[in-house]
């Protein structure tokens, strides 16, 4: 490479400075890695300890001990919370992405009066802080008789992040050449058929981005779950952690086990699809 040749021709002091710079760079990187990974690694390791080991403050468990997991799974219906979370976030995500795709397609292909005005108004909703409207949303669900139901939570969740998704997918649909769709229409395909068979498959990367963003948001959501549900039957995973503090106050490893179980799925998904997740987050960052 060019650069290495250049470096060799530089003076010794400059070379020392470059090395110092490199050391600095790696030091900064290492510090942040430790700060980010340490808490979670510590929790996972601690979930294999005994209560006595936790109190002693040992970093590594003496031996791998699965009692905490057995205890945690007996104490609280963690599997049910887990299934609730999966059901609620996946359903809400599917409804959201379907509605948003349809809307974005209409905004991209439709020609009607007031289209841009309507789009601008919907986009303005992006800046509405979600916690500010929690009381009216609560009352609306109460009127519908959907407080403390999974359906109610799904109904609220599926609306979250709608403006961002609409904007992302509108751009995607608009980048599909019109000719492809027109030729399908000439072949006799209806509007809906063209949308399902031609446009949606071509906008797949955009749709995947929206799905990843929404799934992570719904999976981790806490505030609305706290306000809109009360019973154990409808409790989601993040919310259940709020109740662990009191119920596990005598068995800390069990609490660590519960945290590990709640955190692991998201981490595994992230480890497997980190590139996709990172790209989605970059694409979704269009606030303001």
């Amino acid at each position: 490479m060019n650069a290495t040749v250049e470096i060799r021709s530089l003076k010794a002091t400059t070379r020392a400075r470059i090395i110092a710079g490199k050391v600095f760079v790696y030091l900064v990187m290492a510090c942040m890695v430790v700060v980010c990974l340490f808490p979670i690694v510590w929790i996972i390791l601690s979930s294999f300890k005994t209560n006595a080991e936790v109190f002693k403050g040992a970093f590594f468990p003496g031996q791998v001990n699965l009692d905490a997991y057995k205890y945690a799974l007996n104490m609280a219906p963690i599997m049910r919370f887990f299934v609730n979370s999966v059901f609620i976030s996946v359903t809400a995500m599917l409804i959201n992405v379907t509605a948003v795709s349809m809307g974005a397609y209409a905004f991209s292909r439709g020609v009607f009066k007031g289209k841009e005005t309507l789009f601008t108004i919907i986009m303005a909703a992006m800046v509405l802080p979600s916690t500010a409207v929690i009381q009216p949303v609560y009352m609306q669900l109460r009127t519908l008789g959907m407080l403390d139901t999974k359906a109610g939570l799904i109904l609220v969740y599926c609306c979250f992040g709608m403006p961002v998704g609409l904007m992302l997918l509108r751009t995607f649909f608009s980048s599909i050449p019109l000719e492809t769709e027109e030729s399908a229409a000439i072949d006799g395909a209806s509007f809906v058929m063209t949308f399902v068979r031609i446009s949606v498959p071509m906008a797949k990367p955009g749709i995947a981005t929206v799905m990843v963003l929404r799934f992570l948001e719904y999976w981790n959501e806490f505030t609305y779950a706290l306000v809109l549900t009360t019973s154990v039957n409808n409790r989601t995973m993040p919310l259940s952690l709020a109740y662990f503090v009191s119920s596990f106050s005598f068995n800390y490893p069990a609490m660590f086990a519960a945290i590990t179980l709640s955190v692991l799925p998201a981490l595994v998904i992230f480890a497997l699809f980190s590139r996709q997740v990172v790209n989605s987050m970059v694409a979704g960052a269009v606030k303001g």
């Binding site: 009607f112 709608m162 209806s190």
Partner: peptide, 29 residues
Amino acid sequence: KEKLKWCLVFLVPVVVMFCFLYAVPLVKV
């Protein structure tokens, strides 16, 4: 005309969502 009709139908879900979680609560607040 057919296309326009379908476009408006496609807009219904997002407009309902917009009213349900954004517009109506904002006015109420």
